[in-house]
Design a protein around this nucleic acid. Sequence first.
RNA 1: GGGCGGAUAGCUCAGCUGGUUAGAGCAUCGGCUUUACAAGCCGGGGGUCACAGGUUCGAACCCUGUUCCGCCUACCA
Length: 834
Amino acid sequence: MQKNTENYIDFKDFPKNYDYQTVEKKISQYWEDNKIYKFETSDKSRKIYSVDTPPPYVSSSHLHVGHVMSYSQAEFIIRYKRMKGFNVFYPMGFDDNGLPTERYVEKKYKINKSKITREDFIDLCLKETKEGIEIYKSLWKSAGISADYDLSYSTIDERCRKTSQKSFLDLYNKGLIERRNEPILWCPQCRTSLAQADVVLEELTGVLYDIEFKSMDGKSLIISTTRPELLGGCVAVYANPADDRYKFLEGRNVKTPLYNREVPVRFDESVDMGYGTGLMMVCTWGDVEDVKKWKEHKLNTAIVVDKAGRLNALSEKYNGLSVKDAKKAVVADLNELFLIKGEKSLMHNVGVHDRCSTPVEFILAEQWFIKILDSKDKFINAGNQMVWHPEFMKARYDEWINNLKWDWNISRQRFYGVPFPVWYCSECGEIITAVESKLPVDPVTDLPGTNKCPKCGGEKLKPETDVMDTWMTSSMTPLINSRWAYNDHDSKELLNMIYPMGLRPQAQEIIRTWLFYTVVKSIYHTENIPFKDIMISGWGLDKSGKKMSKSLGNFVAPEDIIKKYSADALRYWASKANLGQDLRFNEEDVIAGRKLLIKIWNATRFLITNVSAEFNPYEKNMTELNLSQIDKWVLTELENTINICENNMESYEYSFALRTATDFFYNIYCDNYLEIIKNVFWDEEEENADRKKTVLNVMYFISLNISKIFAPFMPFITEELYLTFYKNFEKGNSIHLSNWPELKKELIFSDSAKISAILLNILDASRKLRTNLNLHQNHKVNKILIKSLNADYIDIINEISGDIRSAVRSERLIFSDKADFQTADADIFISLEK
RNA sequence: GGGCGGAUAGCUCAGCUGGUUAGAGCAUCGGCUUUACAAGCCGGGGGUCACAGGUUCGAACCCUGUUCCGCCUACCA
């Protein structure tokens, strides 16, 4: 066998300590230089495994170990697939357009969008984005994330803008996008409209006020509300049609307090007779229920809250006050007039903007909507066609769709996002869209293909200045990656190759957004599901079980952990949570990972330093070797381990796989097999040479295969061992491109369990005896005495007496009734004689 | 309000479709150092499996109810 001189080191000088800091840097560079994780576009022989990698918000927060955890978990599977022979398409994306980035920039520079020009703001965002990407890239690389970084994209780059805009045009042409003027969810803090998915319910303590309205003839009518500040926008009072108390109000008006405005009384079954007095006020608009009644019953429109979250002139003396201040003022005034008849505090759910926690309001504005309410069935059906890991996460997807109440509003009144490819005619309002071949466009600086309105011939065209919801782009990731927006031959071919994608790994909190919207887009654009398998990871929690976040101060930086304990050790921690399960961060678990690395290093070093220059692991097949029972046992256990690990990896149960492999490695291989056979290497006699050779072959076979199983989890150390040692005997430039161990049925010896149990019971008992006798485990004894009450065992013990003597470090083995120490098998007794 | 996940040793967690005496790592205690590894090895102690019922020859596991933790979801103003 030809030695690879470049990587060859004298095996006897193999380093005693594993210097992970140096090795990980070196290996990382090696992968990059040799393009180990490159997706081979032209390779038609291998099956493709494509991954729709989550693009994290580059600027929203720094990554913590929880992020590394979820990326690693997906990566375990991806690396496994690569070793199973798939041509892996694994891009790295960076999500940097939209509100998360804008919020980050606003906070960092202490500005808001009204205090800076659009151009300067976008420049700042682009600058932060660029810096963020570099930081993220270097962290992902140091964590061993095996993406093909040549396939990277950023959601503000040209391809993503083009894809988002094409998506808009396609949906517009299909009639799935509409411009509508209707009440929309609005964040007064960010001064933009929102979609339902951007609003989360927060449980807040509020006060429920009983306020006195008056009937036209002066009767007192008590209405309970949590939002007295909206009184100026009250357009109706509602009661339940079955409520006898208020039948007399039918067809009449009532007077609102403070304003003395007349509003009609209406009836609707949705009003709960038991709540408060059974009377309810409806404003335009205080909540979803108000919007619903306003729509259904065509109520008057009396908008009182402006885009900044302040009351307007309609609220008379409260004009200009913020919603919060107005509430105080209104309550004070009502109190002065003795119009508050009661108040009690209550916990209620308030919709707040998920990026800034500001309570949302309703605003009337013209916006672009993607129609989704009509197609709920299609989306549910798509969910059923995908395989969910873990399965229970699918319920969240179904629940979200079933509860959707609004079409998807994709307009945002912001700066830093993908622009709409749209202009409007100032004369007649006609909508003019961009020509597809010109995409991406910015209507603020670019002109549409025409100078005149095609409808009225008007020459004044004004650009749409809103930008798209950030999810408008993120939802395109499978189609961004497969170059759906491009019509050239290569792009079309790529689309056919990698779409639908094989895997979507992601976090649980974005099922309602990223996952759902991606399904929407894929169904609408391609009538296909976007990916086949979905992997939902849990959260990284702090030591006490709280979700890790920068604001809580319980943030553990992955860089620090990697520096201190190595990336492999951090990934080991990440492997401990099953899919979908949250995982507490314990430094002890990382330390356990480092311990495993050191053990792997030393166990392999034991093999390496005993190998001679002529060593050739493939001189004979394993089955042609003169295997002892203990060799057969360890090989059988290895094959069983390979089998279990493979099954686990196939079903995304990476955690079980690594645990199984680790158990085998520690208990079977290191603590027993190596301990039993190691004295072969202490004996320099000629007659031992054959046995030594066999043992080395077994060790090589096991070490290599277990390293391959470890490789997806601990890619650095396994690669280092591969390049410095295994590569001298194997083909291929990386363990990560080598084949996953193939199950060899001929190495499963059916009776090895029974035979080895006898040996291990004897070894176990002898270890206990040695401890009792304060005898060193390796100290050679003169003889071991064995008594067996089971006659069947005698032959077996005779057959494996060599293994037994080797295991218990005894010169001789003698059957004797004097043996009095019972083993775990009640039929076998042993004694040791010095 | 509805739903999902979890509760097992001091800590972090395994425990598959029910089957001897419930496991691992860490921690703890005792012992062992020229022969891969002291960042090691060998051995020991430690559990009313959240609680209460039920099904069964047999329950950590299945069923019913309860408590606590986390999450998703929800128009009672």
